[in-house]
Design a protein around this nucleic acid. Structure first.
Length: 801
RNA sequence: GCCGGCGUGGCGGAAUUGGCAGACGCCCGGGACUUAAAAUCCCGUGAUGGCAACAUCGUACCGGUUCGAUCCCGGUCGCCGGCACCA
């Protein structure tokens, strides 16, 4: 029989929409379930099969949950601010607003063609004034609480995009957008004080259920280390040079100190430092190095020894030299270190290069060859000598430092504050006004949203200024506090702003009084299950947990953590096994697949192709295999009988399949869930017929994966109702067991036969049956029995000598 | 360098976490239907030997624990991801 997927799929998509079966209900007696997928960035390229895989996972869970009787919120929206749209607009001259609208329309059409059960009444667009009003509102709340601030520091700057980037946006020293090398620039920028939330973000991980690798990546990104701050006196000054170390117990091994070339103390003492011209020359040399060069030359330590600027080691009052070197970063710790060459490889390399003495303070290595970073007995360390436990020696040193008042326990994080402004047009305007009398004044809450003005020229200025700076009608304003002439902030927020709270807006998307009502926030609570890409684990996931935790701390949301559970899908690679990319020409367009095979086939294939969490290559032939499966499902109607319920032949197969599919959907094992249904359909065709009851169960199980063909079959067969709202099948554990099962019989661990035994057989009975088998009898004949084992339902093993 | 993951047929991948390795799908070979092709259906398909029943080998490599190891332990090699001069 021919299955016309084109007409059928459209028909059911319309029916679902007309009936509103996927709309989340405001007040319901049912238990709630909130499934969240990462909303797409509506790029000009349209959707990617990767999006389909990412959404199909929770799509299946959401459909199953509805059938299980939950009130399900499964929303979708568009994260539409950002550089690609703006760059496209600059290239083509089409306004970003228009580009965004076109792309959203395109994405919406594509998503609907696949038949996803999103609640289309709750769509959000981060560039909509009704939405970003609340993005600005949250920013102002952070400003009010001192979490948004301006500071002049070294920042990551992309010379190609002409924009300041956060640490998260410049991972690996490359621009996240254009992959150019990032340079460090001293600039006055906006920060969000995410570091203040570092501990809360770490502790929160104990209360949620993320896949272990996701949790680990977040922990590493936050990068907490515990150690101590120690103040060294600088000789012939009142100054102290403060350092951070994780090994204060190695203080007796300190033979020099190193400061970052940009360290502010250097300028303060430029008259005292006799070779300050050498310092400046070295700084110039460092500024020229790109991030790439700095990391490639790890072994080649460079630096300058300061003349007339030395320190005193507080544990033994020895005078030690101070160097500057670019292996010490201004951005971590205090920008200065105590160097212990015997027990730190970098310090060791530097010491060898500059001829500084190396003093062993921990026994166990060979410091004539390399630094020893392991544990061991303390030596040459005064009051620490003889201690063998790292904990003890650190504790003893901390006591000493506290007693002398020159140091204390400290904590450091790799995570840095979030550089938050972008010198670009296509983003949320930062609602701050600079008044010559009052300083930084927030735009009053009742004047939000501060709308992004419509401009003609949205290209960034070469002077590093936002395009908004040229719009005088926008820039010039009155101070809300004193009424004086004032100027607006002209930078915009980064792409990640809107996505940092979008999951809250879905709960109550039309609200103009609040970002979401308290009732909606209380009802929906946490996102029950969030799925997305690994690439967002150390960006969006961290940012949004931070915003949510802040909103919790100021009493705006009821729970501290936003996501109860987080999973991540693996990439879909090109047919050649490489990452899909336009330049390689190996990109698969979901539209093409739907055109040729239909949405049900596409949905089934992206979940069947491999382990959901791992990357796997696209294979057109395997798509055809799924097409065959869908057609075979359609053709089940040709062998259906009039009987209700399960047949004797297939009853246990059905109970097992219901169990397996139900369980696999919960554990991301979509591939084996589908394989189970394929195996079941093979059994059905082998049996030659299927009862009505069996067919109903089969199409219900398959419905979350292939909703169109199963709905059509349900209608053609006259089963009544819609599968989308039909109850999920249940199974009977007792019926999952066959009366007789085949087990293996081993002799000395080698398989000699397969026999049938009653499934409830005890060891004695099974072993007796095994011995009756001719091949087994021959193998043990004349041998002495050592041990006889029966693993219930699995095998018998006879150990003989 | 540090942290994490992985390594199973020609391919994508299964295997109840110590109990019949290779489910399911693809590819490939043979057959049926057809004037023919496509589609569909049936049979076969880890390797080696054998007409066959069967035997031997087999989960990157070497070794260990165990009645029994893809799974646990020790070592080696290779691939992927994250961080990276983090003091």
């Amino acid at each position: 029989m021919y299955y016309d997927f084109k007409a059928t799929e459209k028909k059911w998509q319309d029916k679902w929409e007309d009936a509103g079966v996927f709309h989340a209900v405001e007040h319901s007696d049912k238990p709630k379930f909130y499934a969240l997928v990462e909303f797409p960035y509506p790029s000009g390229a349209g959707m990617h099969v990767g999006h389909i895989k990412a959404y199909s996972g929770l799509e299946v869970v959401s459909r199953k949950r509805r059938m299980e009787g939950y009130n399900v919120l499964f929303p979708i929206g568009f994260d539409a601010y950002g550089l690609p749209t703006e760059n496209y607009a600059i290239k083509t001259g089409i306004h970003p607003r228009q580009v965004t609208d076109i792309n959203i329309k395109k994405f919406t059409g594509q998503l609907k063609r696949v038949g996803f059960s999103f609640d289309w009444t709750r769509v959000i667009d981060t560039t909509d004034t009704r939405y970003y009003k609340w993005t600005q509102w949250i920013f102002l709340k952070m400003f009010e609480h001192g979490l948004a601030f301006r500071d002049k520091t070294l920042v990551n700057y992309c010379p190609s995009c002409k924009v300041v980037l956060s640490n998260e946006d410049s991972q690996g020293g490359k621009c996240d957008i254009c992959h150019s090398d990032i340079v460090q620039k001293s600039k006055d920028v906006w920060y969000l004080r995410i570091t203040e939330y570092a501990d809360k973000l770490l502790e929160g991980l104990d209360t949620v259920n993320y896949l272990p690798n996701i949790r680990l990546q977040q922990e590493n990104w936050i990068g907490k280390s515990t150690g101590a701050f120690v103040n060294f006196t600088v000789k012939d000054t009142d100054e102290t040079l403060r350092i951070y170390t994780t090994r204060p117990d190695t203080l007796f091994g300190v033979t020099f100190m190193v400061m970052a070339p940009e360290h502010p103390l250097l300028d303060k003492y430029k008259d005292q430092i006799k070779n300050f011209d050498a310092v400046e020359a070295y700084r110039a040399q460092c500024a020229k190095k790109t991030e790439f060069e700095r990391t490639q030359l790890v072994k080649d330590k460079t630096g300058v020894k300061l003349d007339g600027f030395t320190a005193i080691n507080p544990v033994n009052d020895t005078e030690i030299p101070i160097f500057i070197s670019d292996y010490v970063m201004m951005g971590y710790g205090t920008g200065a270190i105590m160097a212990v060459p015997a027990h730190d490889q970098r310090d060791y390399d530097f010491a060898k290069e500059f001829g500084v003495p190396i003093i062993e303070v921990i026994k166990g290595g060979d410091i004539s060859k390399e630094a020893y970073t392991g544990d061991g007995e303390m030596v040459n360390s005064g009051f620490l000598n003889g201690l063998t436990n790292k904990k003890d020696s650190i504790a003893a040193m901390l006591d000493f430092l506290a007693e002398k008042g020159i140091g204390e326990k400290g904590v450091q994080y790799k995570m840095k504050d979030w550089a938050f402004n972008r010198q670009r047009y296509w983003g949320e305007p930062i609602p701050i006004i600079y008044c010559p009398h009052c300083g930084m004044v927030p735009v009053p809450y009742d004047q939000l949203p501060l709308e992004l003005p419509k401009v003609e020229n949205f290209a960034p200025g070469s002077d590093g200024e936002s395009p908004l700076a040229k719009i005088e009608s926008f820039v010039n304003c009155k101070c809300p506090k004193c009424g004086a002439d004032a100027k607006r902030e002209t930078d915009t927020m980064p792409q990640w702003a809107g996505s940092s709270w979008y999951f809250l807006r879905y709960m109550d998307p039309q609200n103009d009084e609040r970002f979401a009502s308290k009732e909606a926030l209380n009802y929906w609570g946490m996102v029950d299950w969030y799925n997305g890409g690994m690439e967002h684990v150390t960006r969006h996931m961290i940012y949004s947990r931070f915003w949510h935790r802040f909103l919790y701390d100021i009493g705006e949301v009821p729970l501290p953590e936003p996501y109860a559970k987080r999973t991540a899908q693996g990439l879909i690679l090109g047919p050649d096994g490489d990452k899909m990319s336009k330049s390689k020409g190996n990109v698969v367009d979901p539209n093409d697949v739907v055109d040729v095979y239909g949405a049900d086939v596409l949905r089934t294939y992206v979940l069947f192709m491999g382990d959901y969490e791992k990357a796997s290559p696209w294979s057109e032939n395997s798509v055809k295999g799924c097409k065959r499966f869908i057609d075979r499902t359609w053709n089940l109607q040709t062998i259906v009988t009039d009987d209700e319920g399960y047949s004797k032949k297939l009853e246990s197969a059905f109970h097992k399949a219901v169990k397996k599919v139900s369980e696999d959907i919960e554990t991301l094992k979509y591939n084996t869930a589908i394989a189970t249904l394929m195996a079941l359909i093979n059994q059905i065709y082998d049996a030659g017929s299927i009862t009505k009851g069996e067919l109903k169960t089969f199409i219900t199980l398959l419905n979350p994966f292939a909703p169109h063909v199963t709905e059509e079959l349900n209608e053609v067969m006259g089963f009544g109702g819609m599968l989308a709202t039909a109850p999920w099948p249940t199974w009977d554990e007792a019926k999952c067991v066959d009366d007789e099962i085949e087990i293996a019989v081993q002799v000395n661990g080698k398989i000699k036969a397969r026999i049938l035994v009653p499934s409830d057989a005890e060891a004695n009975a099974a072993i007796a049956l095994a011995k009756e088998n001719a091949a087994v009898a021959a193998a043990i004949a004349g041998k002495q029995s050592v041990k006889e084992l029966y693993v219930k339902g699995r095998l018998v093993n006879l150990v003989v000598r």
